[in-house]
Design a protein around this nucleic acid. Structure first.
Lengths: 252, 252
DNA sequence: CGTCACCTTGATGGATATCAAAAACCGTGG
DNA sequence: CCACGGTTTTTGATATCCATCAAGGTGACG
């Protein structure tokens, strides 16, 4: 692949951290680069999981078709994020990944990747760490859902979005993805009516600015406070992104 | 460790599957056996995660202290289950594990275990598969929580309990753990009042039989149906346990 | 037999889903 | 530039589900 600005996101990603130059080079050499247009899918729920992706540039929305047939948004992924790490050993992809913007990814065949992980403990360690984090995040989300207060869930959602797709402007952290009320609702497990009401209220209080598919968080600390103590770390990460100033958030 | 009946649970566990005899022996040799009395903890939430456990015999309840200070039950683990796989790379245990019955575990020091995984790809593969499954299960639970219907969540809970701690009697699948209404409530994100009401209703319909800390599922297919299509696999596993007849469920 | 922990059932209220309708927004094409 | 249609969003009225509060029942165990 070409070594340009976009390489940064890869070099600082969890997958490439603590690797020797040789190992990093091996990963890059065995990967193929793919470009995905907005609206197109990297993979579909139910397909056999043959490929593993790392996002270099762009944004991807991961959705799942519910038992009731509704499409729910699981997460938004950005540069540096690794996709399908856990899926690679499953029977099928548990979700669909769709590009929200022009997106560049590195792709590996599953078996190739596993072979490399087996031969290079450093890679295997990174993979384990990534999957472990993912499991932990999912647990956290599961417990969030049980915690009753609705505004709390939405706030947590916004924090995650800030980390995954946030860009800092002078006003605040702007979410660089076309998130509709419906998207937010499906992420937080609510109806879009409720999301709209809460966001309206927050807008009146000057916490956020939200329009048609646009969303900017003006008062991050307050949102973090609403989200609750357990999410301070996410807020911290989001603030770090803010401090970095203007760039995409790549931190995990 | 002594090679008795209890060895079976280990030999058929996810961690030991597809290993060479030498690798299995290595794992056994480097482990230490611990006995835990009911009510005692394997580890506490917040402690530094130095040790990794596999349950040989018994039952363990994994709980977490909520942001609101409530203790919630995350899962029940039985023979063959591996504990803290993901935690081993974190700063601290995210939960507390308490023995529900007399419990025997194999224990490894975290760094020892990681070294072994690094040197033996087969072990690393198993660990990855386990963590991947865990991540998948967590995702599933998170989406369950968003699905509004309460009876659905309780049904899903019962299915999981059947797999983790179910024993088949001639009446149905009996949960071999002292599960209170409060336990079920915290697993499903509800109040024990609601759980009690639902279980009462189900008892009248002949779906379950529940008393003081006792719980038997009489009509597994119906419960699985209530839980919803996405959990058919769990139901299938539970049925497999049923077919196996009388033994503890060790399947993952 | 008494105490304690657990469970059940009822009554009530509040939060949120649901239903309904209208307004704002965006791109399009006259 | 403005009118139009579709999508997204807002807001209101109502209904429903579940949490909460309250009181009593039941079983286990000393």
């Amino acid at each position: 692949m070409e070594m340009g600005v976009r390489h940064e996101a890869v070099a600082h990603s969890a997958l490439f951290s603590h690797l020797s130059d040789a190992e990093a080079a091996l990963l890059l050499r065995t990967s193929t680069v793919r470009q995905i247009q907005p609206g197109n899918a990297l993979f579909h729920q139910g397909d056999a999981p043959e490929t593993l992706f790392q996002i270099v540039e762009g944004l991807v929305r991961v959705t799942q078709i519910n038992t009731e047939g509704e499409q729910i948004t699981l997460r938004i992924m950005g540069p540096g994020d690794l996709c399908c790490v856990a899926a690679i050993r499953q029977q099928s992809y548990p979700a669909t990944a769709t590009a929200l913007k022009d997106t560049t990814v590195l792709a590996w065949r599953g078996c190739t990747f596993i072979d490399m992980a087996n031969q290079h403990p450093a890679i295997a360690n990174n993979v384990l760490a990534i999957v472990g984090n993912r499991a932990h995040e999912m647990l956290q989300r599961a417990t969030e859902m049980t915690g009753k207060c609705v505004s709390q869930r939405i706030a947590a959602c916004l924090l995650r979005l800030s980390v995954q797709a946030g860009v800092t402007t002078r006003d605040g952290v702007h979410i660089e993805a076309p998130v509709t009320r419906t998207d937010l609702a499906s992420m937080a497990g609510l109806t879009y009516f409720t999301v709209s009401r809460i966001l309206s209220a927050w807008q009146k209080q000057g916490l956020v600015k939200s329009g048609r598919q646009r969303l900017t968080i003006l008062n991050m600390p307050r949102i973090a406070e609403i989200a609750g103590p357990s999410l301070e770390q996410i807020a911290a990460t989001a603030s770090a992104a803010e401090r970095r100033g203007g760039g995409h958030s790549r931190q995990r």
